[in-house]
Design a protein around this nucleic acid. Structure first.
Lengths: 144, 144
DNA sequence: ACTTCTAAGTTAGCATGTTAAGTTAGCTCG
DNA sequence: CGAGCTAACTTAACATGCTAACTTAGAAGT
């Protein structure tokens, strides 16, 4: 048996994530937290529920994460004027700065990696997206 | 900003792993543990150190995992006749059975997913492998 | 207005990853 | 042969994912 696709995807992702964690060490945030901040800042994920969906994780994860990020002064979580039991999420100035810096750094590094590997970026990215969409489809089918 | 490659890879892998966990629920093992057993059974990863390398995780992870798997009667870990402070890892009959069943199950499911998505399996798998190799290369460079 | 439903968030407990710092078994060399 | 080296393994403490079960704030129906 050769190492199969799901195994290699698992390994590739785990290593990319750890590399990202190392790059962010100076900023004292993990890659997960950086992603959360990015989604709040760049995609306007404005409640914890929305952020959980965007990150693809559960509400308890986000609940704990927002607690930490608020404590670190990167995120603000006030009551949402839209009503309901919601928290409106916004970035502080420090949070905005971190997202800006981090995105630039990752872009450069990933470009270098892909260039070195010779893999056609656009095609690979498109395939990844298509697999993700199919998986979503299967999961929705299965849940019915 | 569109959702970038590393983000989608992260999401795709996380979901594949969770789907695999659900499929293995009846067998009472997680996907991580299944992978460990597979590497012992199919690749002859015969010490904890070798298994850690093959899985791409650290020794403490493997140490804890082998403890659990041994307790579950899926794995045996005796002293290694090769000497040194090593444990020789081998599958029990139950372990072998699990690996056989699991691999067949995953193969079918992944084939269905990839077919549904229309992504060319061989090419995508080759690209993934190449990226992994490049990342290894970068990490080795960086460590020097 | 009171009950009830629903959606959002929290808390508790588990799994499995990490790093840092021990421990143990055999090898090497003066 | 004893001191120190190295490699493999373990232990401890932390991060962050999950599920299950609870709380809270509005909305809806009578």
């Amino acid at each position: 048996m050769e190492r199969n696709l799901s195994f290699n995807l698992h390994a590739l992702t785990a290593r990319l994530d750890r590399a990202a964690d190392r790059m962010l060490k100076d900023y004292n945030v993990s890659y997960s937290r950086f992603l959360a901040l990015t989604l709040v800042g760049e995609f306007g994920a404005s409640t914890q529920r929305a952020l959980a969906d965007a990150l693809g994780v559960t509400e308890p994860s986000v609940s704990r994460m927002t607690g930490v990020l608020t404590g670190a002064g990167l995120l603000e979580a006030g009551p949402d004027p839209a009503g309901g039991n919601r928290h409106r999420l916004t970035l502080t100035d420090d949070g905005k700065q971190l997202v800006t810096d981090g995105l630039r750094m990752f872009e450069q590094r990933l470009a270098a990696l892909v260039a070195h590997s010779g893999v056609p970026y656009a095609e690979y990215a498109a395939h990844t997206e298509r697999l993700l969409a199919s998986l979503d489809h299967f999961e929705r089918e299965g849940a019915k």
